[in-house]
Amino acid sequence: MTAVVETKGLGKRYGRRWALSDCTLSIPPGRVVGLVGPNGAGKTTLLNLAIGLLAPTSGVIEVLGGHPADGPSQLARVGFVAQETPTYSGLSVTDHLQMGAWLNPGWDNGLAIGRIQHLKLDPKQKAGKLSGGQRAQLALTLALAKRPELLILDEPVAGLDPLARREFLQVLMEAVAEHGVSVILSSHLVADLERVCDYLVVLVASRIQVAGEIESLLAGHRRLTGPRRDPSRLPANYRVIEASHTDRQSSLIVATDERVHDPVWTVEQIGLEDLVLAYMSRGVEVEKRQPAHVEVRP
């Protein structure tokens, strides 16, 4: 099956600063992908490259097997909700739907109207008068009614209160169940993603730190606690992601495909949040040692 997003050595430079470097990814279809990273990591840059709002400085990106923004047929296949779920504040809810219908060849008007009724939005209401949660729902409705194969959302729930956040994700997951749309959503909060995502991409300091199915990532990482040890003397098949030491104790997060047999270690499973944080702090440390933004070009 064609990957929804496939990149090789993808990079984007603004002046002398690389916002995204050497990004190689292959995201299978039918997933809900969580793109996580601190603010300024390059999440928006990657998403804007995927929808064709930006052109790469280096490398290649294919979306659903085509080039991003390569004519109307490619545009029709990808839905996008930008940061802060923007709408036209002077236009009414109905105006938004009409505009959606004019601009999108595959527009599903039944779906759009059904959603607006379900949300109990007043069709005559100006978008500027809607609450943050309602505006986000309107933006999501427009993106869903376009009936895309891939839906890309940039920090869709960042500005929402917990209830609006839950409602937004409910609608999104219902669309995944009903229409089988693939989803990529970015967030700087793991808690937003834990329930909804099954694929994870961690981006820190313009570089991909880890990417894969969440289930296999969790199965492939362990927390080891035991007497103090030099991490460099661990077996070769343990990749240490995070290590902290006290006088007597070492606590490690390691990536390994094998069972840990050494009895000195207490072995525990790790949760998604710990996994993400381990890769995030590793990415930040790597950045401190060798600034990722200064790239030596051949």
Partner: peptide
């Protein structure tokens, strides 16, 4: 599946 997903806001694959 659709009902559970719409209520709990979780991934349908779950």
């Amino acid at each position: 599946v659709k009902d559970v997903v719409a209520r709990l806001a979780i991934n349908p694959n779950t």
